[in-house]
């Protein structure tokens, strides 16, 4: 990991002529991958040392579940029908918290400018950020699921449900990372992200809630399949769009 960090950090020091830069433009895939992982690693290492974001997301999601418990009177009958909804609202809210924070720390002390100065494909920065955001979200989900199972005595560890959670989180963070990097560059910052994100994330949330609900109630797989397909389609489309437009978002 050390070599990767150094290779990403050292490069700006070597001065290149424009000709060299243009000849270096179609970089081999391994470089792209290395840059992506370097960004991810940087985020994870920073988070591992401070644990600010993770603890905030986790405590927040537990609070959301607590509030839902009293707001909806989660007795056995209602639990059946609302579990997937409660879970996804919790994930969405906690996810917004994480997405906001992950870009805000970059903006705070001009770290983003430093990242952008690195002569790597900017899409690599985007993907690095998506992977680290996804990792935070998945870790929080990995804590919330057993807690929810324990509190309400439902078995949430079903392969299908875990797949849906993974697919839904991918779609949510793919759009969320792009939009949060726009939101941090505005005056209204943190309040703006949910307003931008929720209306465009509606499809992924509906599909995820429906698919999770299907797996939890043991519905026929044929009935769940369209929702899972939709999640995959959404993920692919929005990763592709974000890949294409991320340059415009971070351009100075």
């Amino acid at each position: 990991m050390d070599t990767e960090e150094r290779s990403a950090g050292d490069r700006p020091l070597t001065i290149k002529t424009p000709a060299q830069i243009s000849s270096a433009a179609p970089r081999p895939l391994s470089n792209f991958l290395k840059a992506t992982l370097a960004v991810t690693w940087k985020d994870l290492a920073a988070e591992f040392r401070s644990r600010e974001l993770f603890s905030a997301m986790l405590v927040f999601s537990l609070l959301v579940i607590l509030i839902f418990n009293f707001a909806l009177e989660l007795d056995i009958k209602t639990r059946q029908s609302v579990t997937s909804g409660v879970l996804w609202v919790t994930f969405a809210f906690a996810g917004t918290l994480g997405l906001n924070r992950s870009m805000a720390v970059e903006k705070d002390r001009g770290c983003l400018d430093g990242l952008l100065l690195a002569p790597v494909d900017r899409a690599a920065i985007y993907f690095g950020k998506v992977i680290s955001n996804l990792a935070f979200m998945l870790i929080v989900e990995a804590f919330v699921l057993p807690v929810y199972s324990f509190l309400y005595n439902v078995n949430l560890f079903k392969a299908g449900l875990l797949l849906v959670i993974l697919l839904g989180s991918i779609g949510y963070t793919a759009v969320g990372t792009l939009l949060s990097s726009m939101a941090v560059q505005t005056r209204t910052r943190d309040v703006l992200l949910p307003i931008l994100l929720f209306p465009v994330a509606v499809p992924v949330l509906i599909a995820a809630v429906k698919a999770s609900g299907g797996f939890l109630t043991g519905d026929d797989f044929a009935n769940i399949l369209p929702w899972v397909n939709l999640l995959i389609v959404y993920d692919v489309i929005f990763i592709a769009i974000a890949f294409m437009v991320f340059d415009y978002v971070v351009e100075e």
Binding site: V175, L178, L179, M182, Q185, T186, L196, P199, V200, A201, V202, P203, I206, A207, L230, V233, Y234, I237, F238, I241, V245, Y248, V249, E251
Partner: peptide
């Protein structure tokens, strides 16, 4: 202008998907 264009593009793709989902 750039952010506006990016957001209308995302919205323009997302709204039809929402329609299909519902």
């Amino acid at each position: 202008a750039r952010f506006g264009a990016v957001y209308t593009l995302i919205g323009g793709v997302s709204a039809p998907i929402t329609f299909m989902v519902i």
